[in-house]
Amino acid sequence: MSDAPASSSALLSFNNVSMTFDEGTKALDNVSFSINAGEFVTVVGPSGCGKSTLLRIASNLEANTGGTCAIDRNSIGYVFQDATLMPWRTVARNVELIAELHKLPKSERQRLAAEAIELVGLNGFEEKYPRQLSGGMRMRASLARSLVMKPKVFLFDEPFGALDEITRERLNDELLRLFQHEGFAGLFITHSITEAVYMSTKVLVMSARPGKIIASFDVPFAYPRNHDLRYEPEFGELCGKISHALRGAHE
């Protein structure tokens, strides 16, 4: 379904969304929340609770069996867990791909791709092939590819899950800068509570399958955030509360 978002400021809203797969797996149960412009919402929850399903419904890769999901489908950026670059394309040509699929003229998409490459700091690597890049750089290229069309809503399915701690923290900062610069609304999935708190304006905790939202935490820290924030007492306290809720979710 592609209803327009209910309230004018909500770019994405789930209203009592449920999902039961064909063979009877109930993945989501009455999920309701919405994301406004300028919000960055992160969902944490036990493995297999339906987090990816939530994103797949939002992007119409999957059709929900109950409730409604309102989003502007023409303005979605989707970042997969793996970079999903085309190995036969150079970085520049990979970043152009989505613009190309939208049939933008060549000069236009090259210009947009160059901008996006600059934004993620991959300048100088335009002519490299994915196999020549490190995991972190591939992820940047993947981010750049989604940035090209300047989506209003960005969906991230554990984009940094496969990266080492240092690279992950660096990319966290870069993504936050992009978030502030581009002003999109973000829906982010992660298994890391620290990452969730560091990135978000709000953290939602999902229960084990069938996934429901069982807790919601507003994150009070102002942007831009500094990586030392992770060692502030308030930060740790919030992480503790979320961890506690998550423990409950596993029961």
Binding site: G121, N123, L133, S134, G136, T167, R170, E174, R177, H181
Partner: peptide, 14 residues
Amino acid sequence: NTANTITNPVEEVI
């Protein structure tokens, strides 16, 4: 706005 760009990816190119 170039102030917002990230200019120093330290990961090595293979």
